[in-house]
């Protein structure tokens, strides 16, 4: 399996009176053709990592190759093979939507006619044709984000980096963005994205690296991550009279890890729920069971288990 990104003991230390270690010796392997997520809270080192992969941040030590090229040795050639969507709206405000894409193609060496054709086709297939002659300031947040992605992939990059692509988007635009990314992935583009939204990582990524304080804590498929850290299914029972008497027999059921007594509820943490649920209902019934809700293990629980903290917004 060839690697789209391979980082080896990659570090970035910002010098100063108190040097800041933004990235602390990480190893990273992004397989070709994957959607790979760097998940972590703000300030974890995600953006710096992407910056090093995209030739914008010079590593303090270690090495990173992108599509087999060392990023510090040949930045222009690396840039030719990658597309980058940064956290900011960097659209060229002096050019129309169409020219933003067409000039981008020219920067990557396309001739006048192929550049125009490519811009036209991309705007068409991403639903931006009717905005072709508009100026970028007039676009909504979701549309501007889509145009940034269109522009980033206009030169047929092998690998697309997106830094917090859904930050600041409304839920509808976020879902539209996911569709765009999945479509690009289907057409063969490797995607590396950073996010602090668990749901986004879970929905999109085949592999996820959880990063905090500049270190990668764990890297695997979302399913494996959830199992690996023994994340739990949480069953919440609303009872008329939740009490220790009801909790005790539930605690003794095989597969139940622990039971917490809350305000009007009993919370059961279980490794798996298959076959267990009917017995739980049976035991809880006499105590006046009113409602039952089940939460699957999430990356949020994984993150909390690993770091002892919730992801901060």
């Amino acid at each position: 399996m060839s690697l789209a990104v391979h980082a080896d003991k990659l570090s970035k230390v910002y010098p100063g009176p108190e040097p800041v270690t933004a990235v602390d010796g990480i190893d990273l392997e992004v397989p070709e053709g994957a959607i790979f997520g760097l998940l972590g809270p703000n300030g974890a080192g995600k953006t710096t990592t992407v910056g090093m992969c995209t030739t914008r941040v010079v590593p303090s030590s270690g090495r990173v190759t992108v599509t087999g090229l060392d990023v510090t040795e040949d930045p222009p050639m690396v840039r030719k093979r990658i597309g980058v969507v940064s956290q900011f709206n960097t659209l060229d405000r002096s050019c129309t939507v169409f020219d933003n894409v067409a000039f981008h193609c020219r920067y990557f060496g396309m001739g006048a006619r192929p550049a125009k054709r490519r811009a036209g086709e991309l705007l068409e297939s991403f639903g931006l044709s009717d905005k072709a002659s508009a100026m970028p300031e007039t676009l909504s947040g979701g549309m501007a984000q889509r145009l940034l992605i269109v522009r980033a992939v206009a030169h047929y990059p092998e690998l697309l980096f997106l830094d917090e692509p859904s930050a600041g988007l409304d839920p509808q635009s976020r879902i539209a963005l996911w569709d765009v990314l999945l479509e690009l992935h289907r057409s063969g583009t490797t995607i590396v994205l950073t996010t602090h939204y668990m749901e986004e990582a879970d929905r999109l990524c085949q592999r996820i690296a959880i990063i905090d304080f500049g270190k990668i804590l764990v890297c695997d498929t979302p399913e494996a991550l959830k199992q690996q850290v023994s994340a739990e299914t949480v069953v919440e029972l609303k009872l008329q009279q939740p009490s220790e008497e009801v909790a005790r027999p539930l605690r003794e059921l095989p597969g139940v890890l622990r039971v917490e007594l809350g305000d009007g509820v009993l919370r059961l943490f279980m490794r798996e729920r298959d076959g267990l649920l009917p017995r739980v209902v049976e035991v809880a019934q006499p105590a006046g069971l009113r409602d039952i809700s089940i939460s699957e293990p999430t990356l949020e629980t994984v993150f909390i288990t690993l770091t002892g903290r919730a992801l901060r917004e």
């Binding site: 030739t55 222009p76 980058v84 900011f88």
Partner: peptide, 15 residues
């Protein structure tokens, strides 16, 4: 301010 230069910085030529 606008970081518009970004797209040209990422063009395949030396800075």
């Amino acid at each position: 301010a606008t970081r518009e230069i970004e797209d040209r910085v990422m063009a395949p030529l030396p800075t």
